[in-house]
Every structure is written in structure tokens, then in C-alpha cells.
């Protein structure tokens, strides 16, 4: 297992360390634009926008660690090792998860540093970005949980296209169901949304979504293990 961790570190250390830089990104953007933002509310909104941009950048980098392993020879070789392809996939999942954790830790650390520096300057900052950053981190976990099986099953390039096709098909189906109100779908969706996200339930709903994200990530690992060998057979080289 140590060997696989070492291999991932040697291949992807640049991307892993970039997670720290992504956490620093909002801090730099705010410093660069500090003259444009004039009041406390604007500053909070600007911090949120910068945080979302940082999440997009980090998400893009996280998918890059899936590149380079979609080769037949690597697939056969890793299957023949004592750890097997399951060990390889497990380390991949652990690494991507660690990248998300590293990013959120870095983001929150730099945000706290920014708040401390702002307080020294006499600015009063309202709210912590955690209320936005933590749900976004779980959204990122769900997104990676969908990315990885596609990348392993179809190869990185084809996997991206296949995922896009599935996503578009899913959006079209949902849109058609909503627009035509087939089987009372729109009403059921609206009513269950209204019930779930009441003021009393919002924290509970958020907690459930977070747990669903973690479960989805684990299920994604199990799916990847199932489809990996089929994928290896179809890799281009």
C-alpha cells in the first residue's frame, strides 16, 4: 500500500500541493480587489464569490489526478500485484478525498487569517465562509463520486464525454418531467422540497445531504471496483 501511496504522491504531488494554493486564492483575490469593495456586506458577498471560484479551480485540479492511469498495461500489471486493482482504486479515492480535505482546511485557515488581518485594519466582517464552504465541500465530494467511475470505466477522455452525455440526458429527462408535470412530478417535487427545507428542518436536511454525499463516495468506490476491469479491456493503449 505504501508503494501505491508513493506512486500517487510522485505523480500528483504538484496537484495535491495546488490545493493549498486554491485555498489561498480567495485571499489573494480579495487583497487584489480590496479598493473596489467598500462596505461589509459587499465584502461578505465578494468573499463568497471568491470561495466559489476557488472551489471550481480546486474541482478542476482534482479531476486531473485521474489522468495517466488509463492504460491497458498499467491495468493488467496492477491487477497482478498483491494489492490488486482494488488497492489502487482505494488509494485513488483516498487521495482525492484527502485533496478535498486539504483544500477546505487551507481555505478556512486563510479565511481566518484574512478575518484577523481585517479586524486589525478596523474592518468589521460579518459571517464566516464555513456556512458556504462546508456544503460546497460535500457537493465536491458528490461530483468526484460521479467523476471517478466514469474515468476508470471509459478512460479519462471518453469518460468525460460519456459523463457529459449522461448528465445532459438526466437534465433533459428531469426538465421534461417538470415541464409536462408527468405523473404529478412537479407538484410532488415542490411539496417534498417545501417539507424538507423548512426553517426547522434545514440543518437536519443539510446533515442528511452530507451523509448521502459520504455514502455516495463509498458506493462510487464499490462501483469503480466493479467496472475497472471492463474499462481496462477497452482502453485505447
Amino acid at each position: 500500500m505504501t508503494g501505491l501511496v508513493y506512486k500517487e504522491w510522485k505523480h500528483n504531488r504538484f496537484f495535491i500541493l495546488l490545493m493549498i494554493a486554491c485555498g489561498l486564492l480567495p485571499f489573494i483575490m480579495i487583497l487584489y480587489n480590496r479598493d473596489i469593495v467598500t462596505n461589509t456586506d459587499e465584502m461578505y458577498n465578494f468573499r463568497i464569490i471568491c470561495t466559489v471560484i476557488a472551489f471550481l479551480a480546486a474541482g478542476g485540479i482534482q479531476t486531473m489526478v485521474l489522468m495517466g492511469d488509463d492504460r491497458k498495461i498499467w491495468g493488467y500489471w496492477i491487477t497482478a500485484t498483491p494489492e490488486g486493482y482494488r488497492g489502487f482504486i482505494r488509494v485513488k479515492y483516498e487521495m482525492v478525498f484527502a485533496m478535498i480535505v486539504l483544500f477546505i482546511t487551507s481555505l478556512q485557515t486563510f479565511d481566518r487569517l484574512f478575518c484577523a488581518a481585517a479586524a486589525d485594519k478596523g474592518w468589521e466582517l460579518t459571517g464566516s465562509i464555513s456556512s458556504v464552504a462546508v456544503p460546497l465541500a460535500f457537493l465536491q465530494i458528490i461530483l468526484r463520486a460521479t467523476d471517478i467511475p466514469f474515468a476508470l470505466r471509459y478512460g479519462n477522455k471518453k469518460g468525460g464525454i460519456t459523463k457529459l452525455i449522461y448528465s445532459i440526458a438526466f437534465v433533459i429527462i428531469i426538465s421534461v418531467l417538470i415541464l409536462t408535470n408527468a405523473g404529478n412530478f412537479s407538484v410532488i417535487l415542490y411539496e417534498s422540497g417545501e417539507k424538507l427545507f423548512t426553517e426547522d428542518n434545514i440543518s437536519l436536511a443539510l446533515g442528511i445531504v452530507c451523509m448521502i454525499a459520504l455514502t455516495a463516495y463509498y458506493l462510487s468506490y464499490r462501483i469503480s471496483c466493479r467496472v475497472y476491469l471492463k474499462g481496462v479491456e477497452q482502453y485505447d493503449h
Binding site: I100, V101, L102, I104, T105, Q108, T109, V134, A137, F138, I141, S203, L204, L206, G207, I208, C210, M211, L214
Partner: peptide, 17 residues
């Protein structure tokens, strides 16, 4: 239940510090 779920979620992504 809310507290337990939120703690579990926090524990998974925010305990690394």
C-alpha cells in the same frame, strides 16, 4: 439526529487540522 449528522459530516472533512 441533526447534531449527530452534522458532527459526522464535520468529522469527515474538518477534523484533519
Amino acid at each position: 439526529v441533526t447534531a449527530v449528522l452534522m458532527l459526522a459530516a464535520q468529522g469527515a472533512v474538518m477534523s484533519a487540522g
